[in-house]
């Protein structure tokens, strides 16, 4: 499809707060991108001209922030609202191979929703969450730069145009520690590696897997970002849209890759 046919929605509810910069980043590449309140997909009070459906778009983004305050558990309320009214639409969207990106709180939403790790091609949204983004080992919110080794072998449609081995995207979160079900960690990691679902892992300046502060949250296997089995859903804790303008522009490749992929379908 041509660039001017691409339509991107950045989804928000109260408390998502990285939508402005995310929209700006997509628009930088000349595509249509708007932030859309979740209510616009289902609420009766919304006027006709502001009503939307997922079929209006070919790329969805769950931005960073603190959706609904994250008071229950990060991403829990946003995903519960999605699940209750839009689960089928979202599954269709994923099955059709359209890209979905979840950044920080958006990653938390996708995990709570069961869309990641997303092992089952036929049921892209699992019945219940299969992993958790838990509280950082430091037990507090931390904003810092993070170095990420790109380990995807080609499945993830968001990193195909990424040329560097190691990129810098900043992190800013209190709940970003990847945790798999107890006792099944190895099984999950092996599965992710085999399926080529690992996308980014935290490393130090030498490019080696390292502990705190390089792994800012204590994440299992130093995981910073993973994609689903079909490679069209990516969730990551670090913020590529914050490494976009100056001085660091590493994050551009993530959006460029997704648009390039859309250009080929």
């Amino acid at each position: 499809m041509d660039r001017d046919e691409i339509r991107v929605a950045v989804l928000r509810i109260e408390g998502t707060n990285c939508e402005d910069e995310t929209v700006k980043a997509f628009r930088e590449f000349g595509v249509f991108c708007e932030s859309v309140h979740l209510k616009q997909f289902y609420s009766d009070m919304i006027r006709d001209k502001e009503q939307r459906t997922f079929t209006d778009y070919n790329c969805l983004v769950f931005p960073g922030g603190f959706s609904a305050g994250d008071y229950v558990r990060a991403g829990a309320i946003f995903s519960a609202r999605l699940k209750s009214v839009l689960q089928n639409d979202l599954e269709d969207f994923i099955k059709q191979g359209y890209p979905i990106l979840g950044i920080c709180n958006g990653f938390q939403v996708l995990v709570e929703l069961g869309a990641l790790p997303g092992f089952d091609e036929d049921r892209p949204i699992a019945e219940k969450p299969e992993m958790v983004l838990g509280i950082n080992d430091s037990n507090r919110f931390e904003c810092r730069p993070s170095l990420l080794k790109h380990e995807n072998r080609g499945k993830c449609i968001f990193t195909r145009k990424l040329e560097k081995d190691v990129v810098m995207f900043p992190v800013a979160h209190a709940e970003g520690k990847v945790i798999f079900p107890k006792g099944k960690e190895k099984e999950y990691i092996d599965g992710l590696v085999q399926n080529d679902q690992i996308v980014f892992r935290y490393v130090d300046t030498k490019g080696s897997y390292a502990g705190y502060p390089w792994n800012p949250n204590g994440s299992t296997y130093n995981i910073a970002g993973i994609c689903n089995i079909t490679g069209n859903v990516l969730g990551l804790m670090p913020h590529p849209e914050r490494a976009f303008w100056y001085p660091n522009t590493d994050g551009r490749a993530v959006i460029e890759s997704a648009l390039d992929y859309l250009g080929r379908i």
């Binding site: 910069e21 931390e142 904003c143 800013a172 913020h239 914050r242 303008w245 001085p247």
Partner: peptide, 21 residues
């Protein structure tokens, strides 16, 4: 570090400067 000083993606010169971490 407890404050998000990068949200809005417009912080060019950050409150912490120099070698990473």
């Amino acid at each position: 570090r407890q404050y998000d000083h990068e949200v809005r993606a417009s912080t060019v010169v950050k409150p912490l400067q120099g070698r990473i971490n």
